[in-house]
Computed example of a mutant assay.
Amino acid sequence: MSTQRAKKSNPGVSGKRGSARSAYSKDEIREIFRRFSVQRPEPKGELEHTNAFTLLVAVALSAQATDVGVNKATKGLFAVADTPEKMLELGEEGLISYIKTIGLYRNKAKNVIAMSHKLIDEFGGEVPKTREELVSLPGVGRKTANVVMSMAFGKATIAVDTHIFRIANRTGLAPGKTPDQVEASLEKIIPPDYLFHAHHWLILHGRYVCKARKPDCPACVIADICKAAEKTSEMPAPLVPVE
């Protein structure tokens, strides 16, 4: 599907600078997230971790890698290095021996070691709870910070990964040219009572249903509401009942 066609077909996409208006009404948006909540009442992230530090490391390692691949590498790693202090004892080469199956492993190893140093030197070995402090750590961007804030500290954030960015633009739910624009739009339109779990609902929907190559529209619980320009031709599965 070309960019030009998407802009013409999807009422939510705009050529103007900044994020565009959602293609959905407030009632439609609430219904979308209500159905997600019925489908997955307690969605969980798929990166395995044991504490805030191992979560931070796992998310940092997951850039341009699959959660499955990261989990395989970190299973042994976190058994021996689940704190910044233990990570420094392991050292960069020791860390590489565990994560060399992950893409960009050398650069990621440098960042994790530098991150561990900074956590000890500036934060007493504890993972900070604010976005500003988190993004000051080596190898930690806004997306990683948002994931940690949500999963480790229970704060309602939207971490826009490739899945969420794709869904937001493909469906017209929260069109934007950058992840930051999509994040701002989603935080504005998602009903407050659904905001905490919205991050995981959207990621899981993108990973298993609204996939990049061929969206599985027959398995989609919002197929009748979705305003994507193109869909697979099969009939959708039975819908989650509308209240």
Rank of each mutant, 00 (worst) to 15 (best):
L61R: 02
S62A: 15
A63G: 10
A65G: 11
A65S: 15
D67T: 01
D67M: 11
V68Q: 14
G69Q: 05
G69A: 07
V70K: 00
N71T: 08
T74S: 04
G76W: 02
G76S: 06
L77N: 09
L77S: 00
F78S: 03
F78I: 07
F78R: 03
D82H: 15
D82V: 10
D82I: 10
P84K: 15
M87H: 10
L90S: 11
L90M: 14
E93P: 00
G94I: 12
G94L: 15
L95W: 05
L95D: 13
I99Y: 04
I99S: 03
T101E: 15
I102L: 14
I102W: 05
G103S: 10
R106N: 15
N107P: 01
A109K: 03
K110P: 10
N111I: 02
N111R: 12
M115P: 06
M115R: 12
M115L: 11
S116V: 05
H117S: 11
K118V: 06
L119C: 04
I120F: 12
F123Q: 03
G124V: 02
G124N: 04
G125W: 09
G125D: 10
E126V: 12
V127D: 02
P128S: 11
T130R: 07
R131F: 13
R131V: 13
E132G: 08
E133T: 14
L134I: 01
V135H: 01
S136P: 10
L137M: 02
G139E: 04
G141S: 12
R142V: 03
A145V: 06
A145Y: 00
N146H: 02
V148H: 00
M149R: 08
M151W: 14
F153I: 07
A156T: 12
T157H: 00
I158S: 00
A159H: 00
V160Q: 07
V160D: 01
I167F: 05
I167D: 04
N169V: 02
P175Y: 05
K177R: 09
T178V: 04
P179N: 10
D180P: 00
Q181D: 08
V182N: 10
V182Q: 09
A184R: 15
A184T: 13
S185L: 06
S185D: 01
L186A: 00
